[in-house]
Simulated scan of single mutants.
Amino acid sequence: MTAIPTDDSLFEFPCDFPIKVMGKSHPEFAETIVLVIQRYDDAFHSGCVETRPSSGGNYTGLTCTVRALNRAQLDDIYRALSSHPMVSVVM
């Protein structure tokens, strides 16, 4: 009899995991997102963020690469970001 894996994760933890965050352009947007993520990844810093403004300059896209320790941590980060008032989209 073979064992059925109980972990449905497609990732091997720990791993570097990029999270894309988009929101209306604001001078403190990137700094605010860094502070939100640091609640769940204390090693996260502004050097882990790539910033891309939209073509019209109305929105800013961030790629935030976190050191994911487990699925629960990623879920917590996603919930915190998606519920933040400055954030429009999280992927």
Results as ranks from 00 to 15, higher is better:
A3P: 10
A30G: 09
C15M: 09
E31P: 02
M22A: 05
S25P: 04
T2I: 05
A3H: 11
T63A: 11
G57D: 09
V87H: 08
H26S: 13
F11W: 14
M22I: 14
I4V: 15
V21S: 00
T63R: 10
S55W: 04
G23M: 03
F13T: 07
R52H: 05
V21T: 05
Y40R: 03
P53G: 06
P5H: 07
F29V: 08
S83V: 00
V36N: 12
R39D: 04
V87P: 02
D8N: 13
G61K: 09
R67D: 08
S9Q: 13
H26N: 14
A43L: 13
D41H: 06
D16F: 07
A80G: 11
A3G: 07
H45C: 09
M91T: 13
F13V: 13
F17N: 01
L69I: 02
I77K: 01
T32G: 12
P85M: 01
L81K: 01
F11K: 10
T63F: 02
I33W: 07
S46A: 15
F29S: 14
E28C: 08
P14K: 07
Y78K: 13
P18K: 09
R71L: 10
F17D: 00
F29Y: 15
A72W: 08
C48K: 12
V90P: 05
V89Y: 11
C15E: 07
K24P: 04
V90L: 05
T63N: 06
A68E: 07
R67G: 05
D75T: 05
D8H: 08
S25C: 03
T65S: 11
M86T: 10
L10G: 03
E12R: 10
F44Y: 08
D7C: 08
G57N: 09
V49G: 07
A68I: 13
K20W: 03
A3Q: 12
S55L: 00
H45N: 15
L74K: 02
T60V: 15
C48W: 03
I37T: 04
K20R: 15
L69G: 01
M1Q: 12
F44C: 04
L62P: 15
I19S: 00
Y40K: 01
A43Y: 04
G23P: 15
S9P: 00
G61L: 10
A30C: 14
I19R: 00
S88T: 14
H26Y: 07
M22K: 13
S54E: 10
D7R: 08
T51W: 00
A68K: 03
L62A: 13
P14S: 05
C64R: 11
T63D: 06
